[in-house]
């Protein structure tokens, strides 16, 4: 059986074959690994991968599973189960001006109609005692400011709309992207 796991922006593909009770064979790229596994408790698994033993702590989260092995924690999600919630900040940069967490708008640095450069500061938000400047993901013109100073905002809420400077024909964008 093939598993497609989403990690940040990438998809990790594993071809997995159950070869016995608590035994599996996993192929990832060119690597093939023989795995023995045993559930110790709801959050703990004991693994033996190619003869080396590891403890893995696993917790179900709203958007996947957090998995900790050897002190390193990864958030992994079944790619077939997700897909509606793209993580911004990938290879092409974020596409929308959104607060990264519940925050308060402390300052608006641009006005409606103003042209902006890629990377130009648009809005300052404050959360957990830290100010963050949210920057324009691409060059364009501010078509709408959806928030006011002092307003509380949620993650994924679009704070500023930007019309891109050049319509990218290859991607067929015709209308303003909610930036």
């Amino acid at each position: 059986m093939d598993y497609k796991l989403k990690y940040n922006e990438e998809i990790i593909t594993l071809a997995v074959e159950a070869v016995g009770d608590g035994l599996l064979s996993a192929t990832m790229g060119y690597k093939k690994m023989e795995v023995a596994f045993e559930r110790i408790s709801e959050n703990l698994l004991s693994l033996r991968v190619d003869g080396r033993k590891h403890l893995a702590y696993v917790a179900e989260l709203p958007d996947g599973k957090a998995v900790m092995v050897d002190g390193r924690t990864f958030l992994l999600a079944d790619d077939r189960a997700t897909g509606t919630r793209p993580r911004s900040g990938g290879a092409n940069g974020p596409k929308a001006v959104t607060a990264p967490m519940p925050a308060v708008v402390t300052q608006i640095l641009v006005a409606q109609g103003q042209p902006v450069e890629k990377g130009q500061g648009l809005v300052v938000v404050s959360a957990m005692k830290m100010d963050t400047v949210l920057a324009a993901p691409y060059a364009g013109r501010v078509t709408r400011i959806n928030v006011a100073e002092g307003q509380k905002v949620s993650p994924r809420q679009v704070l500023v709309d930007i019309e891109p400077a050049v319509v990218d024909a290859a991607e067929g964008r015709k209308e303003a992207i909610h930036g």
């Binding site: 559930r39 696993v58 998995v67 900790m68 990864f74 992994l76």
Partner: peptide, 23 residues
Amino acid sequence: SPDRDTLDLAAIAYVADTMAPKA
């Protein structure tokens, strides 16, 4: 960026967690 080899192990742990029944 995080260690890639451990990421592979974590992916295996994810699958094992899915396959091992939770009593």
